[in-house]
Amino acid sequence: MTALVTLRNVTKSYVRGKQKVEVLHGIDLTIEPGEFLALMGPSGSGKTTLLNLVAGLDQPTTGEVLVAGDRIDQLSRGSLSDWRARHIGFIFQFYNLLPVLTAEANVEVPLLLTNLSKSERRRRVQVALELVGLAERARHKPNELSGGQQQRVAIARAIVSDPTLLVCDEPTGDLDRQSAEEIMNLLTALNRSHKKTIVMVTHDPKAAEYASRELHLDKGLLTNDTRRAA
């Protein structure tokens, strides 16, 4: 099977003051289509940096990043924006919903970057909200929803444009246990029933258990790669 994500000898370093800090050291990684990958590791291990590279939010200092057949390390900022709109669905720890918009308007946001008609956009928003079980809260604004509901709206926003890859940064980090389980069940359903490839950064071992593959990072190096039987 052709890998959906391939990282070859990827390094990432930042300059802090006069110091150069290398966060990732020569990472090699492949992710197959349909995988549900949990990226784990202590704070500062480089999990989020790695996720950002895969999602096209950041670019490596050296090395190659291939996602969905594109060398995204070679794309310009503008092209990378277009590429993200086509290929990536984001789920953030703090949901990052736009507070002035209703749930359905929030879900519609990624579709504004497509050429879909208004009626088609509306139809897709409806489908996405039904999928996450929030169709009846479509007209509610984020501050009228619980944390778990807000994260479900964020998931609907992430899947509404049918992206190639879902990237989740601590998707349960701001939720209570019950809501966290609901979110993880939803992500698992998206992975199993809708064949969505998911890359998730998490601190939570319970959340990681939902993933089909667990990858550990420590001090910028991959230390452990575990696959689970479906």
Partner: peptide
Amino acid sequence: LQEIATLRALGFGS
């Protein structure tokens, strides 16, 4: 800032 960063992440251009 959060709105702008989110929209940029979702693919909105500069």
